[in-house]
Structures are given as structure tokens and as C-alpha cells.
Design a protein around this nucleic acid. Structure first.
Lengths: 330, 330
DNA sequence: AGCTCGAATGAAAGCGCTTGCAAGAACCTT
DNA sequence: AAGGTTCTTGCAAGCGCTTTCATTCGAGCT
């Protein structure tokens, strides 16, 4: 032992083979003879050897590290997706480096540079990178770059998501069909929310409705903002018949506040959310929301990564769609 | 250029210095002459060089990678702490590898091995590792291991947290003093929750109360469980006057369900949560909860890591305490 | 002028693994 | 039995950086 950690050589010596063979056994057991494998396994146990992936990464220029960049995890609609991804990537022997880019993607550039410096095998972005220079840098990096939760015309590499504009339009269509006439939008200050709101308004006007009122709220979205949003209604000239919230949390907070004020939802005021989080189905009343299949996004990410690893071609734009989940609140 | 990525050598050649100097400039700019630094900076820009941290890690045996193991991130009280940690560690040039160990720390062993194989500089665990063999392995790894959110007698290395038992006792004392007589406990199936419940009961009985009723619920905790918990009350022989929930989410769900059933909180039924999440203060009624300073845990983690890096000694048990936040719900 | 000392830099030996190339062994095939 | 395959395995050259040790150079001192 002599203090230092056992290396491949030590295992090799003990097993009576070369380091190369041990390396092969570790990476693709099936190509070494069964008997040899057995001896190597024993040698590993005997020495207490722990593979050094850092050295392996350098030698093979495959780090098995994947960077996932998200704005935050404290209150994020992406958490389920991120969790599913981490889970599944771990199955393939990858590790996920989670980087927080902060509100407005504040630290995006820095975190991308960090990921590149670590020679990650892939970078998974939440949302779309707008900075042209950064996009170029990522293109040149020669690794898989996946943009999720959005669907740009011209992805950096691969995009997996849906059209926020179309989702907004769909919600407008849905509410109009249900007979609502005066929607009020509660819009978090993010590009994605803005796009949905814009889609909503376009469609609403197109269908003959009047310009909806709106309130902008900060990000990340949370329960408390729903309460604020409810109070904001008092300032409106005409009261809305439905409040379209940028997230289920906001919708939930708004409902609680409305109820505390003695307002019945949806009889006196209807509410919709976005994201179809678990709580949307659990709330009283249950919340009408827009479902995005986060697990599907995670699966597609995995599929793309595997295809790339196998050298197969992949689509560059994968639309996972969305759908309105009609419940009690609207 | 010739296709391959520029290396340290390329930068060195361009700047007219040796690779060693460029390396020094990159890692501690202050030790190279100002003029040389300037030339190196220009050479880096000119070549578009991106540092290869994987190679650096191998050569220096410092990966600047830190593993954070948490049960999940979808619905977790630790998210704020984890977020604060990732944020701050990033400032120091570290990256965080986030591993999900799953309910019951299902995949804990695997993820620890992975972290060790990547030669992380430190491992931050959520909760306490119970497996003796694993504890031993971590001790021998020779890296900083921080257990958080708990305070074992004999930490693997460093523990930063609080006594769950004491927190439970404190809640019992608080409620008793407020005049409640029949508490009902809603206990998530986790070691930590169980310990708090146990502390609560001990203290409650000690103070002359009767054995509280209880309901176990699955993990991770979420809003929907609060609703279920409320319905579970119907099965009780005697109705409680206060429901002590294992998390704020459960408390929130329970309140919503109670209100939907026409029960006034806290007049007819009081409720307490745990964690003092933001929503506890935002809910109607606001939720009485137990505050754990997650940001403080993050700060202490950082302090320990820095002290270790500087070779200074550190305490092995850091108690961040807890405190009851009395609000409207109880 | 001669000497010491610190600052700045270079040379070179790794860090621990992967992998292309090649050779030996074992097994067929005709 | 010779020639051809297919498996297994070893050799050795890296992967791109860090760091020890040694060297150079100029400044400060006597």
C-alpha cells in the first residue's frame, strides 16, 4: 500500500496481466477472456483499487461528464426534467455537472466556459442562448449541445422543446372556446413567458377579443407572486373573468388569495396555470394548466446523446408539444 | 490550427515563453511578471485557447470538482442550500457534480463510488450515511466529507446540521405552551423525520401529554400528501387540535383541504409545518414552521472547504440550530 | 567591484490511464 | 499439415497539464 492509492499497474501486477488488459476489462469486460476477468476482479478487490476517471478522461478525451445549465433549482419547472436526466445519465456511467446560470442567464457565459474547460461530452441548456458570440463558440466546441424547453429556428446543434408562442395561442383558443371574454395575463419576466403571452394575445385579438390586460412579475415564479397578482387585480379598470398565470405556483397563490377574499374559483374568477406540476392536480379547486412532458424531454435528450455516442445522425429540432389539461379552475 | 484544439504549448510558443509560465499565469497570475502576463493574455486570445481542466486535475491531483449528493431535487427542502452551495463554490472556480441518491438513499453507494472515481476534492452528503462499510470507505478516501442536515455523534469527517430530535422536542414544547392538547403527527418516511417525531413524542409524554396519534406518509413530501393526511383524520377516534406536519408542503396541502371542507384554520384545527419555506410565510393562513437556516449550512460548508484548502483545522460538528417561527396556523 | 538574494523563468519528469499496432495462441478449414 | 481466422493480450506512445529543481538576471548591499 505504502500510502499512495493503488493504480491500474498495481492491479495488473497482482492479476498477472498488463495494465492495458485491466483497462479493457474495466471499460468493456466482454472483450477480455472470462478467466482473466475473474483474476482481475479479484485483484481489484484485493488492492481496493478505485478507477481514476480523470486520467481516463485525459487519455481517451471522453470525460463522461455532462453539463446541465439551468437558471435555478430552488423553484423551477425544469427540476423534474433535470432530475430525470441526471437519473438516466447516471445509468450510462455519466455524471452531471449542474451549473446555475441565475436569473436572466446572468452567469451563462462563465458556466459555459467552465463546462468547455472541463471538456464535458455534452452541454444541455435550458432555454435558448441569445448571445451570438456564445452560440458561435458552442458551435465550434465540437461537442453535443442541446437546447431544451424551446425550439429555435436555427438551433446551435440540437433543440428539444416546443413553441412557446404556439402554446400561448392554444391557451387563448381554449379559453375563448370556453366562453371567457376578459383574460388577464400574469407574465413572469422571462423570454419564454413573454413569448407565450405574445402568442396568447395574437390569437386572442385574431379571434376578435379585446386586448387583454397584463401584469409582469419577477422570476423565479413562486406562490407569493400569485397573492400579489391577485391584489393587483384591484387596480384594473374592468375585472377579468379569467387570470392566465405563467406558472402553476402563481395560479395556486392567486387562488388561495382569492378564496381568502371570499371569491369563489372558478365561479367568480377562473384561473389557469402553466407547467402542469403535480400540485395543479392536487389543488382545490384543481388547476387547469398546460402540460409539458418534462420526462419526455429528458428521454429525448438521452436518445440524442446515445445516438451521438454511436455516431448515428440525429434530428436537430425535436418538438415535444404541449397540451391543455382542463380541470376545475377554468 | 490544423483542426486540433490549441494547447498550452501553442499559447506558450505564441507568447514566447515556456508552457510552465503559461500554466503559472493561469493558476496564479501574480507570480508572473506583468509584461509576460500581458503577452500571454494576448496569445490566449489569439489562439482561442481553452484551458483543459481534466489534464490539470490529473497533473495536480486537485480536480476542483465537488460532489453533492441529495435524495432528489424535484421536491426537496435542501434545494435552497444546494443552490447556495453551487453558487458560492462556482465563485471559487469549483464545479459541482450533482448526484441523486434517490429515496432511501437507494443509489448512495454507487454515487459515492462515482465521486471517488472522479477524484472529487470533497463530497457533500445530505443526511447521514448509515452503512458502516461506506463510512469506512469515505474515511479512507482522504478527502473532505461533509454530512449536512444532521449532527451525528461521530461524523465521518465534518458534520454541519442540527439535532432533529431536539427540533422535535422544541416543537412539542412550543405547542404545549400554546395550550394544544391532542397533536397528530404526519411523518414522512425518512430517518430525519422519524427522529423529529420521536423527539416530539418523548417531550410530549414527559410534559404529561398523552401519546399523540400519527400517520406515516411517503417521501418526497408534497402538497398532495397534505390532502391525504387531512382525509386520514376521519379515521381517528378522537380529533386532534393540531396537526404537526413533516414539511411545509404537507401543511399547505392539509390546510387547503381542511378549508375546502369548511374547517377554519387555526380556529378549528391548527397546523404546523417544517422547513420554513417561503410559501409558509405566503400561505393563507401563514404557516407556523420550524426554520432551518439552509443558507447558513451552505456558508459553513464553504468555510470548511476553504479552511481545508488552506490547511487549517476545522471543527467536526457544526450546529446551525433551528427555531420555531410562530405564525397564524398554530 | 564582488557578493548575496529574491524574482522570474525554463527543462523535464511525471500524473494514471487509453489505444493503435502487432504478435502469440487457439481453433478452423480444406 | 499448412494456411487462414478469430481471440487475447502486451508494448509503448501519448493525452495536456503541473511542479520540482535549477538557472538566469538584476537589484541591493558592503
Amino acid at each position: 500500500m505504502a500510502g499512495r492509492n493503488p493504480r491500474l499497474d498495481d492491479v495488473a501486477a497482482k492479476a498477472g496481466v498488463s495494465a492495458a488488459t485491466v483497462s479493457r476489462y474495466l471499460n468493456s469486460p466482454e472483450i477480455v477472456a472470462a478467466a482473466t476477468g475473474q483474476r482481475i476482479r479479484e485483484a481489484i478487490d484485493a488492492t481496493g483499487y478505485v478507477q481514476n476517471l480523470a486520467a481516463g478522461a485525459l487519455a481517451s478525451s471522453r470525460s463522461r461528464l455532462i453539463a446541465a445549465l439551468v437558471p435555478d433549482i430552488a423553484q423551477s419547472m425544469f427540476n423534474d426534467t433535470v432530475e430525470a436526466m441526471i437519473d438516466e445519465l447516471a445509468m450510462d456511467g455519466n455524471s452531471v455537472m449542474l451549473s446555475l446560470t441565475g436569473p436572466d442567464n446572468h452567469r451563462l457565459a462563465r458556466e459555459i466556459n467552465m463546462a468547455l474547460a472541463r471538456r464535458v461530452d455534452a452541454i444541455i441548456l435550458t432555454g435558448i442562448v441569445s448571445d451570438t458570440e456564445m452560440r458561435q463558440k458552442l458551435r465550434l466546441a465540437g461537442i453535443t449541445v442541446i437546447e431544451t424547453w424551446g425550439l429555435p429556428e436555427d438551433p446551435i446543434d440540437v433543440a428539444i422543446g416546443f413553441s412557446h408562442r404556439a402554446a400561448g395561442e392554444e391557451m387563448a383558443r381554449f379559453l375563448r372556446q370556453r366562453g371567457y371574454r376578459r383574460p388577464h395575463l400574469v407574465v413572469p419576466r422571462s423570454t419564454r413567458s413573454a413569448r407565450r403571452a405574445s402568442g396568447f394575445v395574437t390569437r386572442w385579438l385574431h379571434d376578435g377579443g379585446e386586448e387583454p390586460t397584463r401584469l409582469e412579475v419577477g422570476v423565479p415564479s413562486h406562490f407569493g407572486q400569485g397573492r400579489l397578482a391577485y391584489r393587483g387585480l384591484a387596480d384594473l379598470a374592468a375585472q377579468p373573468d379569467v387570470v392566465v398565470c405563467g406558472s402553476d405556483w402563481i395560479a395556486q397563490g392567486l387562488i388561495v388569495e382569492a378564496q381568502a377574499a371570499g371569491i369563489r374559483v372558478p365561479d367568480q374568477l377562473a384561473v389557469t396555470g402553466f407547467g402542469n406540476l403535480r400540485l395543479a392536480g392536487d389543488m382545490r379547486p384543481t388547476i387547469t394548466s398546460m402540460d409539458i412532458d418534462g420526462a419526455r424531454i429528458a428521454r429525448e435528450v438521452l436518445r440524442v446523446l446515445r445516438a451521438r455516442a454511436a455516431g448515428e445522425p440525429v434530428e436537430t429540432r425535436i418538438d415535444v408539444g404541449f397540451r391543455v389539461i382542463a380541470r376545475e379552475s377554468a
